[in-house]
């Protein structure tokens, strides 16, 4: 009875979707989807993202999305990165006092799945890391960038934790502290890159802006746009590398904390109450 009711609701939703679509395509709203052209702002982005004829306006990256993420709307992305930073910090604060470490004198080969799975996983992890580095480092030329590469690289520690066990991951160097160092390095790098041009401007006595990439009309200095004839997008390459580090290491910390066995967490929590 309940089941039949559920499927009736589903069928009603599909039918109403089709009916609404029919009404709109018959001219119910006065126009049809999709829209024939993009907006003027999009034309501006597409015209200037890689344009040798307008050297004062271009971001010098053939990839318009990466150019918008780190050049046109770079400050926006900086604050998004700080939201990411705060979310990870909040997760770590909830799990404070809980150490991610392997017990002493542990036989690692007893944990995890069979030897065949482990061997295949070793190859897969290497491929995942290589692919993610390629995605991140070619971000200014092909689809990809720091966020994409970092999210792809974060799959590797997760696979290691699931297949080999948490203790293997910790004893092979994927520790909370080292990941925190990597993440801080990434965030520092983002900060340094965004202030690099303005500091250079102060030293050389020329005007410059925060988050400046290419030379502008009133600010004649900037990052190099080409290296050995390959478009580098100036700051975009550095932002992509540092964001890759920050995202990959941040997610790795979270997975390490998530996979701590519940019994040891409860022991820490109850012990903490006893001392108070």
């Amino acid at each position: 009875m309940r089941r039949a009711y559920k499927y009736a609701v589903l069928v009603a939703m599909i039918v109403s979707t089709l009916a609404l679509a029919l009404a709109v395509s018959a001219g119910g709203l006065g126009y049809a989807l999709p829209f024939p052209a993009v907006r003027n702002l999009a034309y501006w982005y597409l015209r200037t993202t890689y344009n040798p004829f307008m050297p004062k306006f271009t971001a010098s990256a053939p990839e318009a999305v990466t150019a918008i993420v780190w050049d046109y709307r770079g400050l926006d992305t900086l604050f998004e990165t700080s939201v990411f930073f705060l979310a990870i910090i909040a997760s770590m604060a909830l799990m404070r006092g809980i150490e991610v470490k392997a017990p002493k004198s542990i036989n690692l080969s007893k944990y995890g799945m069979s030897a065949i799975v482990k061997t295949v996983t070793k190859i897969t992890v290497a491929i995942i890391l290589a692919a993610s580095a390629s995605i991140a480092l070619h971000g200014q030329l092909t689809p990809g960038g720091g966020f994409q590469g970092g999210a792809t690289a974060a799959v590797a520690p997760l696979v290691i934790i699931v297949i080999f066990s948490l203790y293997f991951a910790v004893s092979s160097g994927i520790k909370k502290k080292s990941m925190l160092t990597l993440r801080t390095l990434g965030l520092l790098g983002i900060g340094v890159t965004s202030f690099a041009v303005i500091v250079a401007g102060l030293i050389l006595g020329k005007a410059a802006y925060v988050f400046q990439n290419q030379p502008k009309e009133a600010a004649p200095i900037g990052f190099p746009s080409h290296i050995l004839g390959v478009p580098m997008g100036g700051t975009l390459l550095f932002f992509n590398i540092f964001e890759f580090l920050a995202v990959a290491a941040g997610f790795t910390i979270v997975f390490l904390l998530l996979s701590v066995p519940e019994e040891s967490v409860r022991k820490v929590l109850e012990g903490g109450e006893g001392h108070d």
């Binding site: 999305v65 689809p143 994409q148 699931v162």
Partner: peptide, 17 residues
């Protein structure tokens, strides 16, 4: 393609995990 590259690891891999 950019969103695809970020969405496949996040929503098909990491979210369910």
């Amino acid at each position: 393609p950019d969103i695809l590259l970020v969405y496949v690891p996040v929503a098909v891999g990491l979210y369910p995990a």
